[in-house]
Structures are given as C-alpha cells and as structure tokens.
Design a binder for these strands. Structure first.
Lengths: 118, 118
DNA sequence: CTGTATCCAGCCGGATACTG
DNA sequence: CAGTATCCGGCTGGATACAG
C-alpha cells in the first residue's frame, strides 16, 4: 500500500509528463505551497483557505512521502506526531511555484499569496 | 455548456489555487506543452507519446477555449476544421513549463522534451 | 490535535464505436 | 482527418463520524 519508489507511471520520457504524474491534480501543489510557506502540521494545512478535506489531505501527504517530496519528523511521542518537511526535491519546486504565482497574479488580478516566498 | 467567463471556481484568492482550478489535472498542461511546441491540430495532439483519449482531448480543448487559453481558427470549411492556437494568456505559461522542465530533468534523469522550447 | 474510516455522488479517463 | 458518443470501473473529493 505504501508503495515506495515510483510505481508504474512514467507515461512518457517527458519531464512534464513525469512531473504531472505526481503533481497533476487539484491539491498536491497547494500542499507544496503551504510547506514552502513554512507550514508543517496537519492542522495548519487544514486551515488554508481552500478547505481541503481530511481524507484528501492524508492521502496526498502519504503519496508525497512515498514519492520523496517530503519526510515525516517525529515531534512528539505517545501518541506519535509528525511534522512534514520538504526534501530538496520538494524544495526545488519553489521556482516552479514562483513562476506560476507570477503568471497567476497577472491573469487573476487581485489574487495574492499570503506571505512572499523566499 | 460553453460557459465563457470563469465559473464559480476561485477556491481562494491565491493565484496558485486559481491556476490549479484550470490547469490542475493530468492532461491540460500537456496540451499546453504541445501547443508551445507548435502543434495545432487534433491529430497532432493524439500522436503525443502520452496517448490521450479522444474524449478527454476534446473536453480539454473546449475548456481551454472557454477559459481563454486558446482560440480556434478555421483552416477548412465544409466540414469546418479548426486549428488551436494559444492566446497570450496561454503563451505566458511557457515560463512556468520551462521551470517545470528544469525541475523534471533533474529529478527524472533521462527525460527530455522533444524539441527545445523558445 | 492528529489523524483514520466510511458513505456516496460525481468526475476522470481508458477503450471503443460511430459520424461526416 | 476531426470529432462526438457511450459504456464503465475507479478515483476524487465533500461531509461526517470515529479513535488515540
């Protein structure tokens, strides 16, 4: 179920297609955004204005962990609690998101990311 | 059905969320990629290595037209046939895709876009 | 708080057939 | 070639309840 390594995807040898196999949905990139903004905990992701459902959030966090975009770090034992932190692979998406933000601010006037990135 | 103007989306005032409402799926950005590479016709999109289904392609082309990413231009009458060309809004995604390509080539070694972009 | 599980309607997307 | 239509299984995602 956990399914480490990348599964059978790899639709083609195109880097965009490969990326989209992992990031091409409505929510994943929004979680990456939150992580880049410094959010680390389950509750923090739930508080984002887009109102992600709990099952979707749990599902995406697992997939992102399984595909090496983030790692879990214990910050409390009994019961164990995790913080989610980006790997370099995840961190390096910052430039992609930044390009998307620039585009988005142009074509959806009035939108704004909550805190400036880098 | 055609639904010009943006519908009810706008999940939030975040430019990334707005962008993902239109681009956040497995296929849309791949069609944009093809358009940026110079493809214009239905058949050309079908020939891409990712093998998009015809119904999905037709659906995405309509949505992209309805949301102003591309326009249709008649190149034959009776029966009427269209070529699909990016608007400036669509063209401006080039930088986003380019950032994604750079990222993808790093984390999916061996992948490569067929022809270099601009 | 940090999740997990479940119900469920609806969309996604693959395959295929069909029309002009 | 350029689409449209349909069948259909499975995933998506919203709501809610439940557990440690």
């Amino acid at each position: 179920m956990v399914d480490h390594d990348q599964q059978n995807h790899e639709r083609s040898c195109c880097p965009i297609a490969c990326a989209l196999d992992h990031l091409g949905d409505k929510w994943t990139l929004l979680i990456i955004r939150d992580l880049l903004l410094g959010k680390k905990r389950y509750q923090e992701f739930l508080e984002s204005p887009e109102q992600i459902a709990t099952n979707i959030l749990a599902n995406r966090l697992k997939k992102l962990e399984a595909t090496g975009f983030l790692t879990q770090q214990v910050y409390q034992k009994n019961p164990v609690r995790y913080e989610y932190v980006l790997t370099k692979k995840g961190e390096d998406l910052r430039q992609v998101l930044q390009a998307l933000v620039e585009w988005g601010k142009t074509y959806y006037p009035g939108t704004e990311v909550f805190k400036p990135y880098g």
